[in-house]
């Protein structure tokens, strides 16, 4: 394993073919995800933020092998994530697990907690029933569930407890990478903090890597090491959390940060309110996909799509990043 890198993804893309309207209309291509590269080290968290429809969840579905990428590669613990043969894919499944957003839909209502937790072991290991139960009880203790809850049904639990069960299930196979798809956005604020702290404790204890998907910047600020801001399937700013929160360089990141409510008046330094809505990914604007909503838009933005480039310790995809860096913040 090279310097503790758990996952490395290069130019991941996922296109969908959509048929809309009449029989004779041509099928269109929806670029849900278009060229995403990142890597996460052991014990680190990469947070992916962006508004709905920017491709965050598609990224989660690719990394957990629910869907296959249209283009690009990724490796988890050195194993090719798009391997064709079944044995490799099966092996890989043990390295990456997922926690879903809605704890009410992610647990099988017909199964007891014990059965839910033991299912991954049943499929992937040849432990006997007693060993499986031991492991399930051990993990339950780790996430703060009691022994009695082993033989209860999911509907007997609250949202926060259900999310603990979902986290426990994801940990059953000792994965190296945990994909968390908005794991706290369906929970009450008071319970959110508990769940986040649990995730952070588990990360310290098990040296897990997290791919943390969220639209809540205060949550991200709490948990992330690195940050990737996405817009219409592309990363627009990517780098260390501190650097980006300190001085956001992409106009979209600035708008996102400005939209977080602050109590402290001096912290509200950037005022940027986005006009308009997210363009349809079926028909993205030419050039920089953000130019229709961007306050810094100039002629070049409508013609040429900016690539990611290194500036002030982070990658940013904007033609005017330098001038923004000089002027603001």
């Amino acid at each position: 394993m090279n310097n503790g890198e758990v996952i490395r993804a290069r130019n991941l893309a996922r296109y969908y073919r959509v048929k809309k309207g009449g029989f004779f209309r041509k099928a269109m291509t929806l670029k849900a995800l278009d060229g995403v590269s990142f890597s996460i080290n052991k014990g680190k968290t990469l947070a992916v933020v962006g508004e709905s429809g920017c491709g965050k969840s598609t990224l989660a579905r690719l990394v957990t092998m629910i869907e296959r990428p249209t283009a690009g590669q990724f490796e988890i613990n050195g194993i090719d994530g798009d391997a064709k043969d079944k044995a490799t894919r099966k092996k890989l499944r043990r390295h990456v697990q997922i926690v879903f957003q809605d704890p009410y839909g992610s647990l099988n209502p017909r199964k007891k907690v014990g059965a839910i937790l033991e299912e991954p072991l049943k499929i992937n290991t040849d432990l006997n029933a007693f060993q499986r139960q031991e492991r399930a009880l051990a993990i339950m203790a780790k996430v703060g569930l009691s022994r009695e809850q082993y033989s209860r049904y999911p509907h007997m639990f609250s949202g926060g407890q259900r999310q603990r069960i979902a986290i426990a299930r994801a940990l059953m196979l000792n994965p190296a990478l945990l994909v968390a798809d908005e794991p706290v956005s369906a929970l009450d604020v008071s319970v959110q903090a508990q769940a986040l702290n649990l995730l952070m404790d588990l990360q310290d204890e098990l040296n897990l890597a997290y791919l943390f998907i969220s639209h809540d910047l205060s949550v991200v600020r709490h948990i992330a090491d690195d940050l990737m801001v996405m817009y219409l399937g592309r990363p627009v700013e990517q780098g260390e959390k501190e650097a980006i929160f300190e001085q956001p360089l992409h106009p979209y990141t600035r708008a996102l940060l400005a939209s977080t409510p602050r109590v402290d008046k001096s912290a509200r330094k950037i005022r940027a309110i986005l006009k308009g809505e997210l363009p349809s990914p079926l028909n993205p604007p030419p050039g920089c996909t953000f130019h229709k909503r961007c306050p810094h838009m100039t002629d070049i933005c409508t013609r040429q799509q900016p690539g990611l480039r290194l500036l002030h310790d982070r990658q940013v995809a904007c033609h005017h990043a330098e001038s923004i860096a000089e002027k603001g913040g």
Binding site: M65, I66, R93, Q101, G105, L107, E119, N124, A166
Partner: peptide
Amino acid sequence: TKDYVTASRVCGAGPFR
């Protein structure tokens, strides 16, 4: 389409299961 089915698939459950 529910998440618990996807979760089982991520765990490696085959179509029969």
